[in-house]
Write a protein that binds this DNA or RNA. Structure first.
Length: 210
DNA sequence: TTCCCGATTTACT
DNA sequence: GTAAATCGGGAAA
């Protein structure tokens, strides 16, 4: 199964041969897919945050802190890192760089494109609105991603990416990351990336974003 | 083993 | 706008 999407999957070298800030931007416009229980869901990535491993105080792997939870960040790029936040929310990250370098990128928002009925059901909603997938916790709930998926390969048939829109760099906004005030001098680094005029295009024809 | 607290969301007022 | 909900990770003991 999946022969049609198979060849379109974003390849592992995409995650391993660029720098985490660049990949954070390059993820914008790509489509993130999941297929659980035969249900395909997906959406275009419109907001990310990069976490630069050992040197980044906001990163779980700061100082090469290696625990059962962060272990997956040290794997070769192209796997999922999913952890629980505030005891409630499962947050999905993409591990990048080579094995031993714990870089990762948090996916903060997507614009729903595939399996919207399924996502509405998972979110216990009846109507399409921005809140379906406009935050890191809502994205994972809509896509069915759980901490049990931490470590899953991004060329698997469960979670993967596909190339989407080419984004004009002028349309990428950079700002400080959310909720990392504790990271001291690293708290204000502009490592959050999102598409300009995203609200205008949220559920509309995405081709107008380029 | 205990304790503190957070890459947040939602439901209120 | 403000606050409650909720629980696993990590550090200390």
């Amino acid at each position: 199964m999946g022969t049609k999407t198979q060849k379109k999957k974003t390849p592992l070298n995409f995650y391993r041969h660029s720098e985490v800030l660049q990949i954070g931007k390059d993820l914008l416009g790509q489509t993130l897919f999941t297929r659980f229980d035969g249900k395909l869901t997906g959406g275009m990535i419109i907001e990310t945050e990069s976490y630069m491993g050992a040197e980044d105080k906001a990163c779980h792997a700061y100082g090469n802190r290696k625990t059962q939870r962060t272990r997956v960040m040290f794997e070769n790029g192209g796997v999922a890192y999913v952890y629980l936040c505030y005891g409630i929310h499962h947050l999905f990250n993409i591990v990048t760089h080579k094995a031993g370098i714990p870089h990762a990128i948090l996916v903060r928002a997507i614009s729903p494109t595939h399996g919207i009925e399924t996502m509405l059901k998972r979110r216990k909603k009846t109507k399409l609105s921005p809140s379906l997938t406009n935050g890191p916790g809502t994205v994972t709930q809509a896509l069915g991603i759980h901490t049990r998926h931490s470590g899953v390969s991004l060329i698997s048939d469960q979670i993967w990416l596909e190339k989407g829109l080419e984004i004009n760099p002028d349309h990428i906004l950079c700002s400080p990351r959310i909720g990392v005030a504790y990271a001291e001098e690293h708290a204000l680094l502009p490592w959050r990336f999102h598409l300009a005029d995203r609200h205008k295009n949220w559920f509309e024809n995405n081709s107008s974003i380029t």
